[in-house]
Design a protein around this nucleic acid. Structure first.
Lengths: 230, 230
DNA sequence: TTGTAGTTTTGACTTAAGTCAAAGGGATGC
DNA sequence: GCATCCCTTTGACTTAAGTCAAAACTACAA
């Protein structure tokens, strides 16, 4: 049910049943297939989104068609909330655009659109949501800081090794990870290109730190991998 | 006066005189000289800061001593607010560290420290501040998104040209800018090294787009510079 | 003024990572 | 089945930007 989905979203976790009902009346649900565009950075801003199922990539494209992925949004996480706060008045005219592009990476990617105006009204009357919003932004800021640190201070090999360790840490149960995105997308996320990523994984394999089998990467020498990334 | 300074800080701009008085009693003022460390990323988190005079750089250092500057904080802007929202309970134990390093870049750099606990209490009772905090974070997020876009999608020459145009846009009055930071720092901010920055500026000069005289950069061919960066 | 330290520039060289082109793989649909 | 498309890998080559070392310039202090 819709309000059950909303409840699982961090910023809405403080709302009671009535508030959730009210909210669920103003939101819109949409479903996308793999490769479908959710929005382009040229479109007027309508509001922010929640991923309910599937996976969404937030990305930028340069003039010469290079792509860089800023975020990968998994279920019950939000995206495109930043423009909400652009400027109290300007949001509601048509000049506002989405700050990046969003694409579904899996079939049956379901998202919920929260319209900007209604949400802003809710926010101004509800301190709890507001504080959660700040916390959510803080988390996002930490992620971006970390991302910049990785991109500027580390070479591709260290970034790849770092990504593997982070993913393994999330899964935690065993020493292998299964990529949920294509290697093309992983390359774009790590600030490199598929060819280089491929060669890098091979290099880490030749050094006996990992084994790669399709989308499954197994960590063979955790210790060496760890003090290699730092 | 202290509360006059606080009033000029965006997130405090909604507070009345009494609230400002209360706030000014819990804050601490500190003065630093050029090159002084305000905090290291190894120190326990005390609270966030406001720059009142001077300039502060927020930066990261890699194991092999490479530096990257994340932000440059000018007067009446805040820094190190993100950890405030790390986790409601954990902030107050000693395990919390600053997420990056902060250094004064000018003599007589004055900052105000807002202690974490007291500010959190203020925040929970004051929706206005909370909304301004979200807006402030949104602005920061936009900046970081832009920064990542620059670093990943553009080469050094485009980044340098982009920086010049942004600075000129801020000043606005004429077509030349005066760097307020050293070229070493500018290089670290643009994700490169001093040698490369020097050569890049020379290249832009040879192409007759700019002239460089010490810290003053004059834009000679605005149009060409503009459609060069995109 | 000279000294000293820090910043910036220049030159010669190296290298990590990108480009281009082609060949394998794997999945999906007809 | 095979054809098509996309993803991934491999090889050969190029290049942007980094490294290292030294010189030039700047600024302030003795």
């Amino acid at each position: 049910m819709l309000s059950d989905n909303l409840k699982k979203v961090y910023i809405f976790s403080g709302l009671d049943e009535t508030e959730l009902e009210t909210l669920s009346k103003i939101v819109k649900q949409k479903t996308f297939n793999k490769g479908d565009i959710i929005f382009f950075d040229t479109e007027p801003y309508l509001g922010f989104y929640i991923t309910v199922t599937g996976l969404v990539k937030i990305y930028k494209i340069s003039k010469d068609a290079k792509e860089h992925i800023l975020h990968l949004i998994s279920p019950y996480n939000t995206f495109a909330e930043v423009p909400l706060f652009e400027n109290f008045n300007e949001i509601f005219d048509d000049s506002f655009r989405y700050p990046a592009n969003a694409m579904a990476l899996e079939d049956d990617t379901r998202v919920i659109l929260i319209p900007a105006r209604q949400f802003r009204e809710l926010l101004e009357s509800n301190t709890k949501i507001c504080i959660k919003m700040v916390s959510g932004f803080a988390k996002r800021l930490r992620h971006l800081n970390h991302h910049i640190e990785e991109l500027t201070l580390k070479d591709v090999t260290k970034r790849v090794a770092g990504y593997i360790l982070t993913e393994q840490n999330k899964a935690k149960d065993n020493d292998s990870i299964s990529l949920n995105i294509s290697k093309n997308d992983l390359a774009a996320y790590l600030g490199t290109i598929p060819e280089t990523l491929s060669r890098t994984l091979k290099k880490l394999q030749d050094e006996d730190m990992i084994t790669v089998d399709g989308k499954v990467i197994k960590i063979c020498d955790m210790d060496r991998l760890k003090d290699f990334v730092v």
